[in-house]
Amino acid sequence: MAEQDQAAQGNNNPDPSFNLQRTYVKDLSLEMPNAPQIFLEQEGPSVEVTINVGGQQLAESVYESTVTVTVTTKIQDKTLYLIEATQAGIFEAANIPAEQLDPLLGIVCPTMLYPYLRATVADAITRTTLPALHLAEVNFQALYEQRLAQMAEQQSGIELPPGATRQ
């Protein structure tokens, strides 16, 4: 009995917990500034995709994570469509060690949200009657590591020429 009491007293740190509470479309914008004339073009479009990850703390152990994608599709110099969508999620992350919290919010949360974002973008484009665009998979760990490297370079105050790496 005394061993159980000691074990209970020694376990003051509750177990870590992580849960997705809710996911939602935070922002969605679709523009087709050159319609209907652009539909007469015979050339195939070029596509440019940018992805950004963000987030904020809402309460003690509650965080919002966001993934924003901007897709610009052009035929020559004319925009066929421009879509920007932000998928957000509310996550509960309690008793997570500080050194693990940033990677959790910067890698795991966006990875969980991205399939929802892909579906939202594909659905919005399909509703224009244009062929669907299916966004490629994204390695959020690589994006996270890239962001950390950029922050380290900015803090060092030394600018490197394009293509150069730190040793």
Rank of each mutant, 00 (worst) to 15 (best):
D77P: 08
E137L: 05
D77F: 07
E48A: 11
I51S: 02
Q100T: 06
Y114Q: 03
V49R: 09
G55Y: 05
R118D: 02
L117A: 04
C109K: 10
H134G: 00
P110C: 02
A136I: 02
T111L: 03
P131G: 03
T70C: 00
L113A: 06
V67L: 03
T50R: 13
S46A: 11
P115H: 04
Q87G: 02
T129F: 12
E99T: 12
L133A: 05
P97S: 03
F39E: 13
V47S: 05
Y116T: 10
L117E: 07
N52Q: 15
A119W: 07
L40F: 15
I51K: 10
Y114F: 14
A85F: 06
H134Y: 13
I38K: 10
V108H: 14
A119S: 15
A93V: 09
V62P: 14
D77L: 01
E92H: 14
P115K: 05
Q42E: 15
A132L: 08
A124I: 05
S61W: 08
S65A: 15
S61V: 08
L113P: 05
I125N: 08
S61C: 09
I90F: 05
V47C: 02
T120A: 09
L80C: 10
I38R: 12
A98K: 15
Q87C: 01
S65T: 15
L133C: 02
Q42K: 14
G89N: 11
I75F: 04
G44S: 10
E99P: 13
Y114R: 11
S46Q: 15
L105P: 08
E99K: 14
Y116W: 09
Q42C: 00
N139A: 05
M112Q: 15
G106H: 06
P115T: 02
G54N: 10
T72Q: 06
C109L: 06
P131F: 04
V67M: 04
Q100A: 09
V108G: 01
V71W: 04
F91C: 08
Q56S: 13
L113C: 01
S61D: 15
T128Q: 07
M112C: 08
V69I: 08
D102S: 11
Q42I: 06
F91V: 12
Y116H: 15
T66Q: 14
F140V: 02
L105N: 04
A132M: 12
T72N: 13
M112P: 01
V67I: 11
L104I: 05
A85M: 09
G44E: 14
V69W: 01
E137P: 14
I125L: 05
